[in-house]
Nucleic acid binder design. Structure first.
Length: 694
DNA sequence: AGCACGCCGACT
DNA sequence: GTCGGCGTGCTC
């Protein structure tokens, strides 16, 4: 079968031509197996997340697999085999992969190995999903195989054997309902039903109706004959929208839910219902953004500032970025919503890519609770309240509110360890050169920038001029628990990391919760909320601390009754701080806009694009030396990081202009590949859009 | 990444 | 003569 491999003589060009002709006539394999008559070559993406193997490989299609080996199916292939002296293929591990195309011939110069097995005839990798995954891999300097692992759930044979339910006819277009509170709301729904792709950044009104509004947008899209997809940050939020959608659509038949806690079988069954077109609407947590909804008309991302939208697995893509890229590729509408607004959301509005979907100020004021601020200096007289370090205003507000309903107390989690801040006004201390966060090095309290490493000998606060610094320490949880003693006879419930409550009754109770774990209160909501130790949130060493703090506050405050019904929020934090001001005015959009302007001025993301390079000092320097960075790329650092398993670690940040993010990712990926080719290179981590750069 | 081929020094 | 050093290159 391979005796024609070395034709005698002839000029090289002609030789190449002969080879070409021979191979095109019929692909050769190592075993001379019988091949498929039609399209005997399968192009395969092999599920091996190695950067330098991020390419397709061609395999021969044995005749027995001619029908099942269709584009999109899962296959097993031998990969990495060697050719022995006797001319036999030897070794080669079996790897999973997907067929991406069937071809008449291969451009590979050599004999093709046959597909080992078609795992299932189910065509799970659609052309659209493949294209999207490639885009995401490139965006994040990762491999296609890594992204596919996030995008396509593991197969479950039993779930696959079951037939999916028959598709339902589209529902009738829903009435605008509570979307009428937004001037552009009904128009937005009408555009979805008409099959248009409107794009909106939605500032949701406080209160319990946002799940219904998401459900209405989904139903409007379904009514127009297109599909819809909703990504939410956690299972609790999914459950709320699931309930709203089930009610609105008169049953659970028209939508599918994808969350991790369903278990592999149920999850795969639901995913297949979407993939097979049985169901046109899907909601779930972050992986849902990849769900292969047929004729996708709408992508909804709720609370895009929530960190669970950032995937912890390589290459760490963010749901919002995936959704925006997918909407562009598939001509779908976008609804990027939340009680808060991210800087990225503000940027989409600023550039005109999306339009705002927000209620008028008067409606906001009617819906939101009253917000009072109180500095830490204000101390309660009551001994128990003092033990809980509860300011008197907060103490009085709680006592008053407990007469009419439950009171929510938000306490920052332990483990928020902020860096240095001004001792007087608590403005975070930043580097004069690159605006990175300052940190104390050693006991001598020498200051240096955590990003660029430049010493800050003569620091003073840019806000108030103070020279005094304060190392922030948090020890708040126990303080909150003291509240139980401060209010004898009142039941105390807690909700936090390990035990999150979904809801509480409308009876008076103290509900102590860490941010993000707040239970919903039945009836009209909490009578009051106390947001304690705000400084601990505000001074976290993160570029997004302000935005994040406001998001956490708004999420808690949105569970409180409207001001007209007596709802009151007391926030214990520096009253002049920007997020505090934004909370008082209930103006998340204004806050995001200010943050955006500041980021632009400082050259921070998302106005610039960044990548972090982490590893041993030698390896980081090595990679940076190899990388052919785009014109005008800034290098910040490298700076030392805490050692990992006794090994010194450094991190460098790279910054480029917007529009050069793709070039930056490509340059870093190429440098990584070049380093792998060198022997014994220590690993370096590359992360695009690093999240923890404060 | 693995894994084998390849071309130069000290052993049976 | 041959065992083995790890430099170099490939994986359909």
């Amino acid at each position: 079968m391979s005796s024609d491999d070395t034709p005698p003589g002839g000029p090289p060009e002609q030789l190449a031509l002969i080879r070409e002709t021979v191979r095109r006539a019929k692909p050769r394999t190592w075993h001379g197996a019988h091949l498929a008559e039609e399209l005997p070559v399968a192009r395969v993406v092999v599920d091996k997340g190695l950067l330098h193997l991020d390419q397709f490989f061609d395999y021969a299609v044995p005749v027995a697999m001619a029908e099942t080996a269709q584009p999109g199916v899962r296959v097993r292939v031998r990969f990495g085999a060697r050719v022995s002296a006797a001319g036999r293929r030897e070794g080669g591990e079996l790897h999973d992969g997907f067929i991406v195309a069937r071809l008449a011939s291969s451009d590979f110069r050599g004999p093709l190995a046959p597909l080992a097995q078609v795992l299932s005839p189910e065509r799970v990798l659609t052309p659209a999903l493949l294209k999207l995954s490639r885009t995401i891999a490139d965006r994040y300097a990762g491999t296609l195989a890594d992204v596919l692992q996030l995008a396509v759930p593991p197969r479950h044979a039993k779930a696959e054997a079951e037939p999916s339910p028959p598709p339902q006819p589209p529902p009738a277009a829903p009435p605008a309902g509570s979307w009428q509170r937004y001037p552009q709301g009904p128009e937005f729904l009408a555009a979805l039903t008409a099959g248009h792709p409107p794009r909106a950044v939605w500032t949701a009104l406080p209160g319990p109706s946002w799940p219904q509004e998401i459900a209405l947008a989904v139903a409007a899209t379904l009514a127009g004959g297109r599909g819809a997809l909703v990504v939410l940050p956690d299972g609790r939020a999914v459950a709320r929208v699931d309930a709203a959608l089930t009610e609105l659509l008169g049953g659970p038949e028209r939508h599918a839910v994808l969350t991790a806690d369903l278990g592999p079988k149920e999850r795969y069954r639901n995913w297949l219902a979407v993939s097979r077109g049985s169901v046109r609407a899907v909601l779930g947590t972050r992986a849902t953004v990849f769900a292969p909804v047929h004729d996708l008309g709408l992508l909804v991302v709720w609370s895009d500032g929530d960190s669970s939208h950032s995937d912890p697995r390589a290459p760490h893509p963010h749901v919002r970025e995936i959704a925006l890229l997918r909407a562009a590729e598939e001509g779908a509408a976008v609804l990027l919503g939340g009680l808060a607004m991210t800087v990225e959301g503000a940027q989409l509005l600023r550039t005109g890519w999306a339009r705002p979907l927000a209620a008028d100020r008067a409606v906001v004021r009617e819906t939101a609770p009253r917000v009072r601020t109180v500095g830490e200096a204000d101390q309660a007289r009551d001994a128990a309240a003092q033990a809980a370090r509860l300011p008197s205003v907060a103490w009085q507000a709680a006592r008053e509110a407990l007469r009419s309903g439950p009171v929510l107390v938000q306490v920052p989690r332990r483990g928020y360890v902020p860096r240095l801040a001004c001792g007087r006004c608590r403005t975070p201390a930043r580097c004069a050169h690159c605006a990175g966060p300052l940190e104390a090095v050693g006991a001598g309290e020498a200051l240096q920038c955590a990003w660029c490493g430049i010493a800050a000998a003569d620091w003073h606060c840019v806000e108030c001029g103070s020279f005094r610094l304060r190392a922030q320490v948090v020890g708040a949880r126990r303080t909150a628990e003291e509240l139980g003693k401060a209010f004898p006879g009142i039941p105390v419930r807690t909700s936090g990391r390990d035990a999150v409550l979904a809801g509480v009754s409308a009876e008076p109770a103290l509900v102590i919760s860490t941010p993000g774990a707040e239970p919903v209160a039945e009836g009209s909501g909490y009578a009051a909320a106390l947001l304690l130790d705000g400084w601990a949130l505000l001074s976290r060493p993160d570029l997004r601390s302000g935005e994040e703090t406001l998001r956490l506050w708004l999420a808690a405050a949105a569970l409180v009754r409207p001001a007209a019904e007596g709802g009151l929020v007391v926030v214990v934090a520096e009253p002049t701080a920007r997020p505090v001001q934004a909370l008082v005015r209930w103006d998340p959009a204004g806050h995001a806009d200010l943050e955006l302007a500041e980021r632009a001025q400082l050259g921070f993301p998302p106005v610039s694009r960044m990548a972090a390079v982490t590893g041993s000092p030698g390896a980081v320097a090595d990679l940076l030396g190899l990388a052919r960075l785009p014109e005008g790329a800034d290098l910040l650092g490298p700076v030392p990081l805490p050692p990992v398993r006794g090994q010194e670690q450094e991190r460098a940040l790279l910054r480029v202009r917007p529009g050069q993010g793709g070039a930056l990712a490509a340059a870093l990926k190429a440098a990584q590949i070049a380093r792998v080719a060198l022997r014994g290179a220590e690993p370096v981590k590359v992360r695009i859009d690093p999240t923890d750069i404060g």
